[in-house]
Amino acid sequence: MSSHYLSIENVEKTFEKGSVRSHVLSNINLHIDQGEYISIIGHSGCGKSTVLNIVAGLIEQSSGVVILDRKEVNAPGPDRALVFQNHSLLPWLTVYENVALAVNKVAGRSKTSAERHEWVLYNLELVNMLHALHKRPSEISGGMKQRVGIARALAMQPKVLLLDEPFGALDALTRAHLQDEVMRIHSNLKNTVMMITHDVDEAVLLSDRIVMMTNGPSASIGEILSIDLPRPRDRIALADRPRYNHYRQEVLRFLYEKQRKLEHISPKHPPSQARSAQSLPGGGSGSLPFASSADAPALQKASGAS
């Protein structure tokens, strides 16, 4: 169907609770190559976490399809390892045991127990957590917990690493430190990464492309910004680069102006995807059940042409 590693094709999501239908995602199309680092940014409530959860298989899309490495995604699995915002380590297991649980389950047949042990240690070393192997999550700091969460995800050898606001709950210094580590790991292992964030600097610093989402309801992809900055990237050196600041400005402008006037931006920056916002009167206020079958083919055609 497509030559891309990870394809999200015409994905829609409607939540139904009793008689209330809310159309959360509309016509999401995104193609990611192997080894690419993609950030999804948008205002809270725009459904960016829903996109990630659909890729993870934790939420089922209402229509559309997600294809990873030529296979359709329809259930959660270790090939799409998730790093959660609040680390979600199991508190009754030690650091080592948390990673070992994943390794033993995922590689239980393909590796001997000695190999699995080595593999756990290898991944914990990647995130510099060998010193706290036998500590429980309650005994280590928030940044360390997140490192272990990343090690657990990496240990599953996922095809795509999904990060759901991984640094959101950390203080600024710890966050910067962990961002550097993730950049280092990404440059070593060349993982395909999809990251949700609401931090503009983080998105520009880490990503190859930034996917900017319009506001909900019926959120969709507004713009995709390619970040053409050489790697390895250094946050201090980048701060003086006009291009870095230009990218930041682009994202800020999208987020800032998008929030105010939905229809204003679209003519100025032709979006890569069909825009749902155009067909919504008054900038998408109210929760109209918008996904009528009459609209959908037209939108798909438009996105196919772009």
Binding site: G57, L58, G77, P78, F84, S88, L90, W92, L101, V106
Partner: peptide, 25 residues
């Protein structure tokens, strides 16, 4: 919910979920 999600991503079966997640949690 996060523990359940961890179990789902790891594809723990019913028995593993019971012993490794549910009882300790």
């Amino acid at each position: 919910e996060d523990y359940r999600n961890v179990a789902r991503v790891l594809r723990l079966n019913g028995l593993e979920y019971f012993y490794k997640i549910m009882l300790p949690a």
